[in-house]
Nucleic acid binder design. Structure first.
Length: 773
DNA sequence: TTAGGACCTG
DNA sequence: CAGGTCCTAA
């Protein structure tokens, strides 16, 4: 591949390099894709494939059948053999058949063009649009001359007219594609969120097109499997937005374009009606901007096209193709240049409201997919590699968008549990420990913290809780999820050795959005932070991915009666909460565990889901960060979209039982390891090292827990959970150290302790829906 | 990793 | 009987 710089330079894009792409192998029905065997053209700009497709006359033949957008068209041409064939046949019938030697005509025209261009080829690196225009004009002149002879043949006139129509349509369509492409590129570079939305819309459009076409387009199969998401935004808004975008790219041509387009609009409206009134028509506003820039004004060919002859028609087609190719090149170039110029100014995030709605909603499908690639290539039928290189070449920094890694978990080094080694302050033999568990000096930390822990007052919150998190009724997330004073709170409740120790290396910065639902945390983090800022976790695929929490798409778990709720939630969690509260009241669901008997019927009528989905499981796991022992009523409160019956309830309880099991197993495992380490360390241990008996975010234990309960790592593990884990770890350690583990019921005491350390689950969890899994 | 079942407890 | 643990299977 050429160097990125070349690819995006004017010279490369505007050079005659497009001429070689018009070889006969590119004729429709001959070679749907750039032939691999063919010697590559001197230049093979990234837009090659795109232009190539624009050169496919077949691409326009289905315009009338409601092709909604670029993706559908170009991809289909690549992927769907039926359509390849169809295109080719159509082309053969409609274009080539009536014109004797039509193909030769094309070749001739191309030859002359490419030869003429080749003469310049070296110096023509700086060839600009004007040259193309000149060539087009010359083509027209030639066509004029050629037509003089064949003009009397009335028989072919209908055919030619039809052909002309097709060419027009083709041009229209190409323009549409160009517009979409530009839009995509623009968004891709500047506005990730909008790009998401665009992808959704594209997907939607494809589906629409599918139904209208009456067959499944290959593109849908080949595309990323983006399920229908929540994207009911008004297309009109998009149109507005796009207009703005385009006006940035090219101001005057846009306005200029509107003058001449009104008549066309009428014509198009007919088409639109025929096509089922696709919204795209509004989208296409301004699509003529490139053409207008190029000087091939529509009036030109409206007037001259009347006198086309057979070869002239072909040449004209060639001219059109060239025109389109150049236009594409220029568009890409312009967009890219614009982007590079305004990189610093270009907001990495769109207006919050828009981005929130759009990026979170219909996102569920693109998991793990490279959005850039999807944007740039999937719809264009381009070689995806090329598309990627396009981005890459322009700005390597953009790559940060990809290859995201699990940062939070990544903070913890892949250490063995032995890294948790907790040397004992006191040398102790196992025998002594076992035989005289209470006599031997326990680890210093244990002696200190034990008294306070085993019997916390029967308060709603154990002494461990920082003061701010005491009120259980308030929205707890603010206090419990991100206690900024985690270490201090720990120190207040833990024995000195614990708190005295220097805090672990700063964990990945928690998103300072404690009140937010974690999907919103993601969104905010996306919106507020530039992805390339070094100290921030690069947007992992998890962030792009629709693991975003609430799935309100046609998913069965979505609550049927309140569709707007998720929207509210994305805009303002508290608002959503209130709405939800109202909803609960309405349903008879009482937060805090009111009887569900009345509500169940209502829920059933409302269509709540009977079973539990993986999404619910995911949500439950996240809830475990706050509540290890949730009551069934609590569960009902936090899963409003689940119709609880005996089976469901017990299943969910079983879930938490399993969560606890895993949790305790890990605690015991690490505690035992710590004990082993302490014992083997002999007397060399210093009391201070006891602080290693902790569950910092840099520890293996944390990593394991996070991996289990927060696998996709989309949720910031609450500090509170870490504290509880530390308590559990120390409890296990203490019990093992003192030999209590010989008692078959030795864990019960620990369970009891942990049970009291539950903290209220954030209200955000009351929202219906679940993580998409 | 999840679920089922045995078994225990309040 | 609900809720919990422990064990086990897939």
């Amino acid at each position: 591949m050429d160097s990125p710089t070349d690819l995006f330079s004017d010279s490369a894009l505007h050079s005659p390099a497009f001429a070689p792409s018009l070889s006969s192998t590119d004729l429709p029905g001959v070679h749907p894709q750039p032939s691999a065997g063919r010697p590559p053209p001197a230049f093979r700009p990234p837009g090659f494939s795109l232009v190539h497709h624009l050169h496919q006359p077949g691409g326009s033949s289905k315009r009338g059948s409601g092709q909604p957008n670029v993706t559908n068209m170009s991809s289909r041409m690549h992927l769907d053999p039926r359509n390849l064939e169809e295109n080719g046949v159509k082309r053969d019938e409609q274009l080539e058949q009536p014109i004797a030697g039509g193909e030769e005509g094309i070749l001739e025209g191309e030859e002359s063009l490419s030869e003429g261009k080749k003469r310049h080829s070296d110096s023509a690196l700086s060839a600009e649009w004007g040259q193309d225009v000149l060539k087009v004009k010359r083509m027209k002149t030639d066509r004029h001359r050629d037509e003089e002879g064949g003009r009397r043949r009335e028989s072919g006139k209908d055919v030619r007219r039809r052909e002309r129509e097709e060419l027009k349509e083709q041009l229209e369509e190409a323009r549409e594609r160009l517009q979409l492409l530009q839009e995509k590129v623009w968004r891709a570079f500047g506005e990730k969120h909008l790009a998401d939305e665009e992808k959704n819309r594209r997907n939607r459009s494809e589906k629409r097109g599918t139904t209208e076409d009456g067959h499944v387009d290959a593109v849908i199969l080949g595309e990323e499997d983006i399920p229908e998401g929540m994207y009911d935004e008004e297309d009109m808004d998009d149109g507005e937005l796009e207009k703005e975008s385009f006006s940035l790219l090219s101001v005057s041509p846009f306005d200029h374009f509107h003058k001449g387009r009104e008549e066309r609009q009428k014509e198009r409206e007919k088409k639109t009606e025929r096509d089922g009134g696709l919204h795209l028509e509004s989208l296409m506003e301004g699509s003529g901007l490139w053409l207008d820039c190029g000087g091939l004004v529509r009036g030109d060919w409206d007037g001259e096209i009347e006198e086309e002859g057979e070869e002239g028609g072909q040449k004209f087609a060639q001219a059109l193709k060239l025109e389109l190719g150049s236009a594409v090149a220029r568009v890409i170039d312009r967009v890219l240049r614009l982007y590079t110029e305004t990189t610093d100014l270009t907001p990495s995030s769109p207006p919050p409201a828009i981005s929130f709605l759009q990026s979170s909603g219909g996102n569920e499908g693109g998991r793990g997919k490279d959005m850039w690639m999807g944007l740039l290539t999937s719809g264009q039928g381009e070689d995806k590699t090329k598309g990627k290189e396009k981005v890459r070449g322009q700005d390597g920094g953009l790559q940060l968008q990809k290859n995201g890694t699990n940062v939070s978990a990544g903070e913890s080094h892949p250490t063995e549990p032995s890294d948790l080694s907790m040397p004992l302050a006191v040398q102790r033999s196992p025998d002594l420990r076992k035989s005289h568990p209470l006599l031997g000096p326990p680890p210093p930390n244990l002696s200190l913290h034990h008294p306070s822990l085993p019997h916390p007052p029967p308060l709603s919150h154990p002494p461990l809780l920082p003061p701010t998190s005491q009120p259980k009724d308030t929205s707890s997330s603010s206090s419990s999820s991100h206690p900024s004073s985690s270490s201090s709170s720990a120190s207040s409740s833990f024995p000195a050795p614990l708190s005295l120790h220097p805090p672990p290396p700063p964990p990945p910065p928690p998103l300072p959005l404690p009140l937010l639902h974690y999907s919103m945390q993601q969104l905010f983090s996306r919106a507020l932070h530039h992805p390339q800022l070094p100290h921030l976790p690069p947007p992992r695929k998890d962030y792009l991915n629709p693991d975003s929490f609430l799935d309100f798409s046609p998913h069965p778990t979505s609550h049927p009666s309140f569709p707007p709720l998720p929207l509210l939630g994305h805009l303002d969690p508290s608002l959503a909460h209130h709405a939800h509260r109202a909803r609960e009241t309405e349903r008879g669901v009482r937060g805090g565990g009111g009887a569900m008997d009345g509500g169940d019927l209502y829920l059933a009528a409302g269509g709540s889901q009977e079973g539990l989905s993986p999404c619910h499981l995911k949500k439950a796991k996240l809830m475990f960060f706050y509540a290890r022992y949730p009551s069934s009523n609590t569960l009902k409160t936090y899963f409003p979209d689940v119709k609880f019956n005996r089976c469901v309830t017990s299943q969910m309880i079983k879930w938490f039982s399993n969560f606890r099991e895993f949790f305790y197993i890990q605690m015991e495992r690490f505690a035992r390891q710590a004990v082993r380490e302490a014992l083997t360390r002999d007397g060399s241990s210093r009391p201070g090292r006891e602080s290693q008996l902790r569950v910092g975010r840099d520890t293996e234990l944390y990593r394991i827990l996070n991996m289990h309960y927060n696998k996709s790592n989309i949720y910031q593990v609450p500090e509170r959970f870490i504290e509880v884990s530390e308590v559990a770890l120390r409890e296990f350690y203490s019990a093992i150290w003192t030999g209590r583990d010989s008692d078959p019921c030795w864990k019960k005491g620990i369970y009891k302790i942990i049970c009291k350390l539950d903290s209220p689950v954030p209200d955000a969890f009351r929202l219906p829906g679940c993580p998409v899994g």
